[in-house]
Design a binder for these strands. Structure first.
Lengths: 264, 264
DNA sequence: CCCGGCGATTTACCTTGTAAACAACCTTTC
DNA sequence: GAAAGGTTGTTTACAAGGTAAATCGCCGGG
């Protein structure tokens, strides 16, 4: 039953060779060798992955590394910066993913597909970290999560423009693509997270306590099993393909978005 | 110049009669009359709106209400619960919005359009609060932000089912709709927020300091003006219409999503 | 053998969330 | 009108947590 059905989710951590796990994240006391920024960030990611974001404090992260909290300040200016570094590191795993390319050498659809799945892999590999990617303010307003680095924005835009998109269409595509990725992945990840994480409530809820009178919501009750189904992978694919189709039309028509409005 | 161009964004706070501002949020020392939960939550929202989420502490909120921090604990079990209450209150503004209906009396497209714009109005009215809506764990995994209340889920599902959607299609639509709303609004709101909020840096950046060598990203530089354009309203409308079209096809074909394809 | 400096620790301080005891006031009841 | 009790806000107190500053141990070079 561990294998969902026909094909396991190719983006799930167990479902592949771990290409998205660039930083092996040395075990707690393991590193002994000198600390350095990369190690601190790696430990922070590992720590968040296993303990949750709320559990991350400077003191605990220090302990996790077998060191006092203040030692971390030699490599990280402060907590905020640590979190920024975590976000950056996690997104940087994209560079280590052999299935994601920086340029659209096999067509822009292939490029966008691979990029989307690469990001999804990261999100699923670090469900506790991903919300940070969304909530940390980006460098510039037009660097949108989850593609938070200039390098990827550059890559994205040139890939589309080189494939024939107008500049306006490429920018519009970038926005639509970001929204799509962020919305889907944030919901998928939070859904997964709820299954266990939220302040573990050990006492088995007596099946009547938590539910606040469902009698008012008959449809919800009736569809509960449907609602509880996890079709994330299929939905992601579906929405992604729809987006690509939409972009294909834009490309074919060679105009900005849709709509024939003269812009002043 | 305050009026963008031809038509102002109908969802922006200035752009309408304030239908989305259900809680007037009495000014700081104003209320003097007894505190109560509603007042505390209203103050919290007002406080976050003007000071930002990070600035909210029990002590400061107390001061804002002209009261000691501990007084708040009579009406709110603790900080976490306060935030939950804030989220709930903000979403509840939907009930006070005369342009949003609970049932699809004018067709499901009309229903979804109004609902989407209602949520967008809330997001734009409370840009600092909205991220909370996304990040706070929902009651059940299938209650997805930003439609965080059972009542709206019920409303959504029955609206679609009554309009002829199969149960599966209605649930799929619910998921797609949530993702769309969350992705778009989160990005729109964070983009707006960045313009001022992030730990105001008073010293005028000398125009060369912050920018980390843009020479590597020629396309980004070239398209900067395009990237900085704020076309949120149009993009939202565009994506929403696309979603509705997609649903229309699903409805017409009377099948779940698409997929007749076995993949690979 | 002494020394300067790096890397980590110790101390210390301030902010926050929150428990507990307390005070002030309003209402009820005889 | 006074005693009893409840409601509402305050005071005090403490445990985290972030982080500045001083300190200590160690090590290679003079």
């Amino acid at each position: 039953m561990t294998t969902p059905h026909e094909g396991a989710d190719p983006d799930s951590p167990e479902g592949r060779g771990g290409a998205a796990a660039a930083i092996p994240a040395a075990p707690p006391g393991g590193g002994r060798g000198a600390l350095d920024r990369r190690r601190v960030l790696g430990a922070a990611i590992a720590f968040i992955d296993q303990e949750g974001l709320n559990a991350l404090t400077m003191r605990r992260l220090g302990a996790y590394l077998g060191v006092e909290a203040m030692a971390l300040y030699r490599y990280v200016p402060g907590r905020e910066n640590l979190l920024d570094g975590v976000v950056e590191s996690v997104i940087d795993e994209l560079y280590g993913d052999p299935d994601v390319h920086l340029s659209a050498s096999h067509g822009w659809q292939d490029y966008l597909q691979r990029l989307a799945h690469g990001v999804r892999r990261i999100a699923l590999a670090h469900p506790e970290v991903f919300p940070l990617v969304a909530s940390r303010p980006p460098a510039a307003p037009w660097v949108r999560p989850p593609l938070r680095s200039l390098r990827w924005v550059e890559s994205f835009l040139t890939a589309l423009i080189d494939s024939g998109f107008t500049e306006e269409a490429a920018v519009a595509a970038y926005r639509a693509y970001s929204s799509f990725l962020l919305g889907h992945l944030l919901l998928e990840v939070s859904q997964k997270g709820v299954k266990i994480s939220p302040e573990d409530q050990p006492e088995g809820v007596p099946a009547t306590a938590a539910a606040t009178d469902l009698s008012e919501y008959p449809t919800v009750v009736r569809l509960e099993s449907l609602l509880s189904l996890d079709e994330s992978a299929a939905e992601f694919e579906e929405a992604l393909e729809n987006l690509l189709e939409r972009l294909e039309i834009v490309l074919a028509e060679g105009r900005t978005p849709r709509r024939g409005d003269r812009r002043r």
